[in-house]
């Protein structure tokens, strides 16, 4: 691949950090407006919003005051009960971004996941995702459950979980990852706020974050090239022979790293388990082969 073809080189000027800094200053100088947003936790572990709260720079407070006007979030909002759900309904009449965190449970017409009780009506995650998904300007599937079904749809899929993409008959931006890296969400939000839709691959993922495999830029690639393999977790060396899914997994973990950019699974002497992939977890197991 020559330089002009490499998607990384092309997208280099638009790092998540640069983007968010630009957008923060654009909002401050009123050249653009903050977008309204609904963060809808549905059938999952709520780990994607916890990961979002781990955003480093900008931190959660700068995001909430500078990039999006998060009008509904089960985890962060002050209101509760019907008054809270009214904020959800109100937002549907505005221009807004919908962030879906979790898969959508469809068994028994969605009864396995109730997100609100409004005037005696039980609002299922299924119904709420449809309501907001139909009206949102942009829909982001945050995490692997919302993107592909993920662990919530793992065999035998007891709750009949499907992805937000399969539920909604409209374009959805996929941000897979279990959990989704905060930069992937915040960077995409900043892009949408400041510049509109980012370039997406054939699967609806922003090229900016998902264009190459973990193996492509792995910090242990040199071991692979030289045939030095780890025999078990805990060792140095390429972990290809004990089941590392880096070669098939599209994500920028090796260069981006996690949690204040301090570490990532392979540097912690363990396999990439393919958590951003369509067939995670069933198709990515075994996570380790001894």
């Amino acid at each position: 691949m020559n330089q002009s073809e490499c998607p990384l080189m092309k997208e280099k000027g638009k790092t998540a950090k640069r983007l968010t800094e630009d957008v923060l200053s654009m909002v401050k100088t009123h050249s653009i407006n903050k977008m309204n947003a609904i963060w809808l936790e549905v059938t999952g572990c709520s780990g994607n919003i916890i990961s979002f709260m781990n955003s480093d720079t900008p931190g959660l407070y700068e995001i909430l005051t500078g990039i999006v006007n998060l009008r509904y979030s089960n985890m962060l909002m002050g209101a509760e009960g019907e008054f809270a759900f009214e904020r959800f309904l109100e937002t549907l009449d505005m221009d807004f971004i919908l962030l879906v965190d979790g898969a959508i449970s469809t068994k028994d017409n969605g009864a396995y996941n109730i997100i609100a009780n409004y005037n005696g009506d039980k609002i299922t995650a299924l119904e709420a995702t449809r309501m907001a998904g139909e009206r949102a300007k942009y829909v982001l599937a945050v995490g692997t459950c919302a993107s592909y079904g993920g662990i919530s749809a793992a065999s035998p899929n007891p709750a009949g979980c499907i992805s937000a993409v399969d539920l909604l008959d409209r374009p959805v931006i996929r941000l897979p990852g279990c959990s989704c890296h905060p930069d992937w969400v915040v960077g995409t939000l900043a892009y949408l706020t400041g510049y509109g839709e980012p370039e997406l691959d054939e699967d609806g993922r922003p090229v900016l974050f998902y264009s190459i495999t973990v193996h492509d830029s792995c910090s242990r690639r040199g071991f692979f090239e030289n045939g030095i393999y780890a025999r078990n977790f805990g060792e140095d060396g390429c972990m290809y022979q004990i089941g590392c899914r880096g070669p098939v997994t599209r994500a920028d973990c090796p260069r981006r790293k996690w949690n204040g950019y301090v570490n990532w699974p392979v540097e912690d002497n363990s396999n990439c388990i393919g958590c951003t992939q369509r067939y995670f977890p069933d198709g990515m197991e075994p996570f380790v082969i001894y």
Binding site: M53, D268, S270, I273
Partner: peptide, 24 residues
């Protein structure tokens, strides 16, 4: 406090690889 809870997950990742859902 937002920075301190984030830092707690950073400290977790030093030996855990990442958070949420560590590998360590």
């Amino acid at each position: 406090s937002i920075e301190f809870s984030r830092l707690a997950h950073e400290a977790l990742a030093i030996f855990g690889g990442k958070a949420p859902h560590n590998h360590g």
